[in-house]
Amino acid sequence: MNIQFFKYQGTGNDFVILDNRNKQYSGLTTEQIKFLCDRRFGIGADGLMLLNTLEGYDFEMKYYNADGSESTMCGNGGRCLVKFANDMGIKKSDYLFLAIDGSHEASFGDNGWIRLKMKDVNEMDEDNGNCIVDTGSPHYVKIVNDVKKYNVFEEGKRIRNSKKFRQEGINVNFVEIEHAHIYVRTYERGVENETYSCGTGVTASALACAHNTGFNRVQVKTLGGELAVEFQKDEKDHFSDVWLCGPAMFVYKGEIELP
């Protein structure tokens, strides 16, 4: 079976995208998705997305991890799928689409960035001085010094596979606060490695660092580039109108034969 694929990336978080509006790829197996995301034998990506049609929405987002499992929300992926939908002829100034964690709004900014509305966050849990927050996917946020030299793989793997998180898994963000911005590195479950960027992780990190502060916008650096998180926060530290802002770019397209 030959399939046509498209490759997109958002701050180095890369995705295989399939146009599934005719449902021709709905029957992909876990092993086939894993193959497509494999960086040696397939195309190579942090995840795979399907662009589906859905009544009442501009499209539906279906996202899978690189290991072939269906995933929770992916912020960088959401922006890339908006860009893909636009490239495929779904031309709008404002989008409404459905993902696994609910509906999302999105729009194009003046600088070419895409603004993606994330879910509200009304609670944060604490674990040994670190923050646990769900921004569409669960994240463990740990503030560290000199994050560029931090052993993200080993420490992220340890936390993700600890007794408390082993069954469901959790993404682990390591954050250094640098004056007017934060620097975030992420170990992602499903990929089981560090990725260049993670949209829900960037969002979780920004909100955790804005906890009990007067900020309503946080500039974020990742290995793959820069993003920003905008939000409104009330006196009880409930976060609403949360927007993940950043680039999304087409890389290439091609055909591949599934085994």
Results as ranks from 00 to 15, higher is better:
Gly109Gln: 14
Ala66His: 07
Val229Phe: 03
Gly112Ile: 04
Ala248Cys: 12
Asn111Cys: 09
Asn171Thr: 09
Gly214Glu: 02
Asp134Ala: 04
Arg79Val: 12
Trp113Met: 15
Lys117Ser: 11
Phe97Lys: 05
Met1Ser: 04
Pro259Asp: 03
Val184Ser: 02
Arg185Tyr: 01
Tyr252Ile: 06
Asp110Glu: 14
Ala66Gln: 08
Asp127Trp: 06
Ser137Ala: 15
Asn151Ala: 02
Tyr25Lys: 05
Asn151Ile: 00
Leu28Gln: 09
Asn76Tyr: 09
Asp19Lys: 03
Lys163Arg: 15
Val82Cys: 11
Ile182Leu: 06
Glu126Thr: 14
Ser137Asp: 14
Lys62Tyr: 02
Val229Asn: 04
Asn161Trp: 00
Asp14His: 11
Gly246Gln: 15
Lys62Asp: 10
Lys221Phe: 03
Glu176Cys: 01
Asn65Met: 02
Glu154Lys: 08
Asn161Glu: 08
Gln219Thr: 04
Asp237Ser: 13
Gly190Lys: 10
Glu168Asp: 14
Phe153Gly: 00
Ala45Tyr: 13
Asp134Cys: 02
Asn13Thr: 13
Ser107Glu: 15
Ser137Trp: 05
Asp94Leu: 11
Leu54Asp: 09
Gly199Asp: 15
Cys198Ile: 02
Val184Asp: 01
Glu230Ile: 00
Val16Lys: 11
Asp127Arg: 08
Ala180Glu: 15
Phe165Ser: 09
Ala106Pro: 14
Cys80Ser: 14
His139Phe: 06
Ile17Phe: 09
Leu54Ala: 06
Ile256Phe: 03
Leu96Trp: 03
Ala99His: 11
Asn151Ser: 05
Ala106Leu: 13
Val218Met: 06
Arg21Pro: 01
Leu244Asp: 08
Gln167Ser: 09
Asn22Pro: 00
Met118Cys: 09
Gln167Asp: 12
Phe59Tyr: 12
Leu54Lys: 08
Asn128Arg: 12
Trp243Val: 12
Arg217Phe: 00
Phe97Gln: 06
Lys142Glu: 07
Val121Trp: 07
Asp38Val: 03
Arg79Phe: 15
Tyr140Glu: 11
Phe239Leu: 08
Asn173Cys: 00
Ala228Phe: 01
Thr53Ala: 04
Met124Val: 10
Tyr140Thr: 08
Val172His: 04
Thr213Gln: 03
Tyr8Val: 04
